[in-house]
Design a protein around this nucleic acid. Structure first.
Lengths: 194, 194
DNA sequence: GTCTATATTATGATAGAC
DNA sequence: GTCTATCATAATATAGAC
């Protein structure tokens, strides 16, 4: 006897976000219908609109809250630029393994945002990228890193690290600590610090 | 007086592929309609079906022909593993700058392939990745590279290099040769070759 | 080979009952 | 807050004329 009526707002709201995030990450925003999300949640499609004005706002909400969580969680550490870079690399990898769908979404679905929403997310992304760029710039200035182009190195490192979401599967060959070690070793070499 | 009838098969076929590639890369496969492609080509939607059985086959065709071109164009070079890696890096960057939409598509749209088509493209991708993996393995064996995990380093390098399609714009700050230099410098460091 | 017209299905979103 | 029912629009794909 499935429930066909009744209010469960406190669990439905988060559930919608959870299922939308999961489906958007797996199939892509444009390929997922509101009915599909509703079905995964266990409600009818119309019920979703009590929580979001439209599909685009749902995508924005997921991406924006992820970027804000990311920026809140990030804190630079005291130390030399190499220690700070190691911290950044491990932070980014840990975040990517903890929230693979969010990281993947925020990396891949920019093109499905309206121009206005695109600008909002891009602004948040830029703040995050600037954190890495500052570390690299300090590293070069301190003579601890050798980089031809700090801006490009920033983009290259972020792409390399975020790529972990392309292949990582829970319970795979490598544990989280080891993955962090491996990426840190690659990143340290890439910035010319040996 | 726009043409409303007439056969132009020799130019329409390639045009459909060109426009589909461009639109799929910019907006994503699922977000692009057949009408939109037809409009960009300058024909009515129905005319597309003289060239492709359906939309999915069009995507497969674009991805498969790109992967085949990539594999045909790739040739390992004689030399030590570091020279071979430099050749791979420059080949991948050059290809990405020559065919940014194709590279982007083949990297991003895997999830919109049917399971059968997914398997086909993945098989081709694996052959390409294996080319890099072999170089890295030889480099480690020869003592010219230091890598904790060759498989993961392969994925990380491909992600880093392919990331160029995320930010590169024609006529930007850096010319092609310089971009290749910068990525080669990053890659050489990442594999521990200094 | 391309057009116009259309069948069929699916979509995002809303209205009103409970 | 959720349901059922539905509107309006857009999608893929096909049929038949030229």
């Amino acid at each position: 006897m499935a429930r066909t009526q009744g209010s469960r707002a406190e669990i439905t709201g988060p559930l919608i976000r959870d299922q939308a995030r999961r489906l958007f990450a797996r199939q892509g925003y444009a390929a997922v219908s509101m009915r599909q999300i509703a079905s995964a949640v266990g409600v009818q499609a119309g019920a979703l609109y009590a929580y979001t004005p439209d599909k685009q706002a749902l995508l924005l909400d997921l991406m924006e809250s992820h970027m804000q969580d990311l920026l809140s969680a990030w804190t630079d550490v005291p130390g030399d630029p190499l220690q700070r870079l190691e911290h950044f690399v491990r932070f980014h990898i840990d975040t990517s393994l903890d929230h693979p769908d969010s990281v993947f979404l925020s990396y891949m679905e920019l093109r499905n945002l309206t121009p206005e929403n695109f600008a909002r997310i891009t602004a948040l992304r830029s703040r995050y990228e600037a954190a890495l760029e500052t570390i690299l710039r300090d590293g070069v200035a301190a003579g601890l890193m050798r980089l031809d182009d700090v801006k490009l190195a920033t983009m290259a490192l972020i792409a390399m690290l975020t790529g972990v979401t392309n292949w990582y599967r829970e319970g795979g060959r490598l544990d989280r600590r080891r993955i962090g070690d491996i990426y840190w070793s690659l990143a340290r070499g890439a910035v010319g610090a040996d």
